[in-house]
């Protein structure tokens, strides 16, 4: 039991992203409203962005600008003093991608609404079957 607690507490960032990801996945699978599904998709992508941001973090380290280091950048640079900026930079791209995905999904949702006058999957399905 103590072991389990240690695992949960020491790796809380992973648990956080997994919980968020499952919320997103749940919304995408279970919800019948298309906009709710799109929100779920957005949460799902954000969870992965959180994951990446959290893995760049280090204890007792500062932002990766040399003059912000412990000795003001006077001496040799120690990687231990700075958090890893690379995952954060990668996520700038991933954020752009997820915004673009959201845009495309919402545009399609508007098109769906214009066509069927509804965003509920049940109602759309029944309309398709009638035809």
């Amino acid at each position: 039991m103590v072991d389990l607690l240690t695992i949960i507490i020491s790796k809380y960032n992973y648990w956080g992203y997994i919980v968020l990801m499952m919320i997103g996945l749940y919304a995408m699978i279970v919800k019948k409203n298309l906009v709710k599904k799109i929100i779920g998709m957005s949460i799902f992508q954000t969870a992965i962005i959180f994951f990446y941001v959290s893995i760049g973090m280090k204890k007792n380290a500062t932002i990766p600008i040399i003059s912000h280091g412990h000795d003001g950048g006077e001496h040799a640079v120690h990687a231990v003093d700075f958090i890893n900026p690379l995952p954060h930079v990668l996520m700038l791209t991933a954020i752009v991608v997820s915004v673009a995905t959201l845009g495309v999904a919402l545009a399609l949702a508007i098109k769906v609404y214009q066509q069927y006058n509804s965003l509920e999957e049940d109602e759309i399905d029944s309309q398709i079957k009638v035809k």
Binding site: M41, Q45, A105, A109, V112, Q115
Partner: peptide
């Protein structure tokens, strides 16, 4: 539009898992 939206959901899950 509806088919494409379903593809968006599936495609995003796939690409996110890869990421």
């Amino acid at each position: 539009a509806l088919a494409s939206l379903n593809y968006v959901f599936m495609g995003t899950i796939g690409a996110s898992f890869y990421l």
